[in-house]
């Protein structure tokens, strides 16, 4: 969205924007109400979602947050809360490129360096998408889905 808007402001500087160039703005505007309501729901539920995901993962494997030097549940929880927020924000602004380039690709290297892939896989491949499905209306899911798919494709095996 930023990049598209930026691009549009640049082309519309030397000439008028053509009807088809205004379409993405129309599309975005048509979905903004949905995006905002989805964002506000996630904002309200993010901490709770993080707790639930962690407890389910611990139920599966009590030692899943035992990384280097002991239990790292707190740090993993903080990262999860951050990631959910960044995903929500990418959905709000319809800005997946920035999420990928500025966050996901970097975070993947962190996940790998701590051998944290298994938990990450279940979080972003399974639990988070499922919880979002419960939380959001079908319409809201539609705008969140591409972000979750991107997150899953980068952070889960």
């Amino acid at each position: 969205m930023f990049r598209q808007l930026n691009h549009l402001t640049v082309v519309a500087d030397g000439r008028y924007a053509r009807p088809e160039e205004l379409n993405f703005l129309r599309d975005y505007l048509a979905s903004v109400e949905t995006r905002i309501s989805a964002y506000e729901k996630i904002r309200a539920e993010a901490e709770m979602m993080a707790d639930k995901i962690q407890s389910m993962q611990k139920a599966e494997n009590p030692r899943c947050f035992h990384l280097i030097n002991g239990d790292r549940s707190e740090i993993c929880r903080r990262d999860l809360v951050d990631t959910i927020r960044l995903c929500a924000s990418a959905m709000l602004f319809s800005e997946l490129d920035l999420l990928r380039d500025n966050f996901l690709l970097w975070y993947r290297t962190i996940v790998k360096s701590f051998n944290y892939e298994a938990s990450s896989s279940s979080t972003y491949g399974k639990y988070l998408p499922n919880m979002m499905k419960e939380l959001l209306t079908p319409e809201e899911q539609q705008v969140m889905q591409p972000v979750l798919a991107l997150g899953s494709s980068i952070l889960s095996k």
Partner: peptide, 26 residues
């Protein structure tokens, strides 16, 4: 609008955007 959007996405980088901050979008 673009600048406000950019500003919002920057400021809300470490936290959620508040309801008031989302007003301008509405």
């Amino acid at each position: 609008m673009l600048r406000q959007l950019e500003k919002l996405s920057l400021e809300a980088d470490g936290r959620y955007a508040s309801t008031e901050e989302l007003e301008f979008l509405k």
